[in-house]
């Protein structure tokens, strides 16, 4: 369970300060998939980075399973599985070594690591490349490796930044099933996306972000009602205020 309260984050740039996140609040409950939908540059990645403790909010706070992210950063990280925007898989290590490295950094012993790796390899369908060096992996193989690596310590909460970015249709379908399974296990799943259809299909709770602000949130039905649009995509466009930076 992740609770976000009134987050603010401003970056200094040469052309003046930029308010990347400007008062975002939402709640991601366990056993649900929460989706952050917004055009490119809306502040999704920055919001997620504050959730997984790599950035400190200027204002507001984040609670993960009741723990304050700023005060209990190490414990929060233990409870989180993170797929960052940049996958950052080590090219000269095999997929298995990549996963094991993170397992050790999470303090798991070798038995646990190999057990969990086996389970993730099956769930994600990584059998044919698990022992290959990551150099030359396809985008899908890289993403799967990064997801397995993020989940090796069996975290209760899973944060995925644009998980389907650059994946083909089949891989995307497989990944959706995997995320549904995580949800069924009672985990709290948060993902970000700029693809309306994907969020509409997958997410139980949708948070719409534009220019660093949450403009609306709720289930697909609720959003349709709020916007007064029958078609979900029309509802999204209306709530965001523009079609720019979105994909159907």
């Amino acid at each position: 369970m992740i609770k976000v309260e009134n987050l603010h984050k401003t970056f200094k740039t040469k052309s003046g300060p930029v308010r990347a996140v400007d008062g975002a609040s939402f709640e991601a409950r366990d056993g649900r998939i929460t989706g952050l939908l917004g055009p490119n540059g809306a502040g999704k990645t920055t919001t997620l980075r504050m959730l997984y403790t790599l950035m400190r909010p200027d204002q507001g706070r984040v609670l993960v399973d009741g723990l304050d992210v700023e005060q209990d950063a190490a414990r929060v990280r233990r409870a989180l599985g993170v797929l960052p925007d940049a996958r950052g898989v080590y090219k000269r290590l095999t997929a298995r070594e990549n996963i094991a490295y993170f397992g050790r950094l999470h303090g798991l012993d070798e038995g646990e690591i190999s057990q969990r790796t086996e389970r993730l390899v099956q769930a994600l369908g990584m059998e044919d490349f698990i022992d290959r060096q990551a150099e030359g992996f396809s985008q899908g193989q890289r993403t799967k490796t990064a997801i397995a690596r993020a989940l090796v310590h069996d975290p209760k909460n899973v944060i995925l930044d644009e998980p389907t970015n650059g994946l083909d249709v089949m891989t995307t379908r497989g990944l959706r099933e995997f995320l549904q399974a995580l949800k069924a296990q009672g985990r709290c799943v948060i993902l970000s996306s700029h693809i309306m259809q994907e969020v509409g299909l997958l997410c139980d709770h949708i948070v719409i972000i534009a220019k660093g602000k949450v403009t609306a949130q709720g289930s697909a039905d609720e959003l349709r009602r709020i916007s007064g649009e029958e078609n979900l995509e029309d509802a999204f466009v209306k709530l965001i205020g523009s079609e720019e930076g979105l994909a159907a």
Partner: peptide
């Protein structure tokens, strides 16, 4: 960009 996931570990 592999430092980001690395530093997100405990």
């Amino acid at each position: 960009q592999s430092l980001e996931p690395l530093l997100a570990t405990p």
